Simulated scan of single mutants.
Amino acid sequence: MGKSVLIMGGSGQAGRGTAVLLRRWYPALPLTIAGRDLDRARRVADELGNATALSFDLRRGDLGLSEGNGYAAVVAAVRDSHLNGLRFAQERGVPYLSISNGLVDIAPEVVAGAQRAAAAPILVASHYLAGLVVLAAMESAREFERVDTVRVAAVLDERDGGGPAAIADLERLMDVTSAGLVRRDGDFIWVAGAAAQVEVPSVDGVVLPGQTIATLDVPSLALATGAPNVRFDFAVGESASRRRGAVPSTEVRIELEGSAAAGAPLSRSQWLVHPEGQRPLTALGIALGVERLLGLRGQPVAPGLYTPEALVDPAYAVERMAELGTLRL
């Protein structure tokens, strides 16, 4: 733990939440909070303890940073738009994690990782909640001999989009395409127009207008479970908790259909609800990835390109979600 984890965007909501969790789990782990507002980054670092603050520049190959004692890992809790954070990690042979490149704009990151696959472990975690939905679904899938269908429906409260960077990411991803990616009868296909418009249920039964989206969760769930039918529906609107006068919550419904070991039909449905919104769960998804990449849980990860389900144990992720106050209904 002599080297520090560099968290780019560490003073933002996801980055700060990640730092808080890592500090709670590993008090001796040094952290570097890199922010574009140095005063804000310093406040976060002072609150954490055993942390330093600095400003950084994503447009520069060296990120505008001095080497110091080097870094143990690089976390992009903000969009690494020039991929300089990725290259920075590759050149130093340290793990890298990102969360802001959606399915429709992930190609440059994947190509950069593939070109130098032996340089460093790269965790592509631009899934919903940084991979937690996939991990929760995989944990439920343990009951099944065969999974035929996975359906996910998520409600993001319109007042819970995160900080400016997160809102910009969401707007960019929604603007790039109005089509959604689904797996249907084993084929990955695009659905657009009226076919992509859906109704998304909230946990209290209220139905919100939404759409089927293109998200990394779809191929991850399809390939991890073998399910020939997978979709992810998404709505932005008022969450059930806010309708009750409380703060915005995040809500995700996961439905699985298939067969049990004896061949009997089996179906499972669960809600994942966090009363404080998406930020705590996104931070948890990132922290679980960092923990695994550093070998703080399990062996250090070899160089290569990874997704969350390839590294993080689903049962352990679900335990951590419960510790954080996530409700499974």
Rank of each mutant, 00 (worst) to 15 (best):
Q13G: 14
V110Y: 10
A72R: 02
E67R: 14
R297H: 13
D62E: 09
S178E: 15
D148Q: 12
E139R: 15
V44G: 03
G325C: 04
L135Y: 06
A114V: 06
R146H: 07
R142L: 07
S267C: 11
E47V: 01
A154I: 07
N69F: 03
L21S: 04
D46L: 11
E91W: 14
V273A: 00
L29P: 03
R142S: 09
S98N: 15
D57K: 00
T215W: 10
G263N: 02
E47P: 00
V75D: 12
L221C: 07
L54F: 00
G61T: 11
E309D: 14
R292D: 03
S269L: 14
F188R: 04
A137P: 03
T177M: 02
D46N: 04
A261E: 15
P228D: 02
S178D: 14
L296N: 06
L132P: 13
R328V: 15
E145C: 01
P30F: 06
F88P: 08
R142T: 12
G17Y: 09
T307E: 10
R231T: 12
G102I: 01
A315Y: 04
A72T: 06
H127Q: 13
L256Y: 09
R328K: 09
L305Y: 09
T326N: 01
V230F: 06
G10P: 08
Y128G: 00
L29D: 05
G61Q: 12
R244A: 15
L123V: 12
H82L: 00
V203A: 13
R172Y: 10
R184C: 04
E91F: 11
E323G: 03
D187Y: 08
S259K: 12
H127I: 01
V111A: 15
A315F: 08
T212W: 02
V182T: 02
G289L: 08
I106W: 00
A315C: 05
Y26L: 13
E255M: 05
L294V: 03
G210T: 03
R320A: 10
A53M: 00
Y26W: 14
H274S: 03
I213L: 11
R16L: 08
G9M: 01
E47Y: 02
L221R: 06
V203C: 00
V230E: 05
M138Q: 11
A137K: 06
G64H: 01
R292F: 08
L181H: 01
D80P: 01
Q197Y: 03
R183M: 06
L103W: 08
E291Y: 01
A310F: 11
V150S: 02
L103F: 11
R268E: 15
T212F: 05
W190A: 14
G64N: 00
E109F: 09
L156W: 10
L38S: 07
T307I: 10
W25I: 04
L296A: 07
D62Y: 08
Q299P: 15
D169S: 13
H274F: 00
D185Y: 09
A227S: 07
T177I: 02
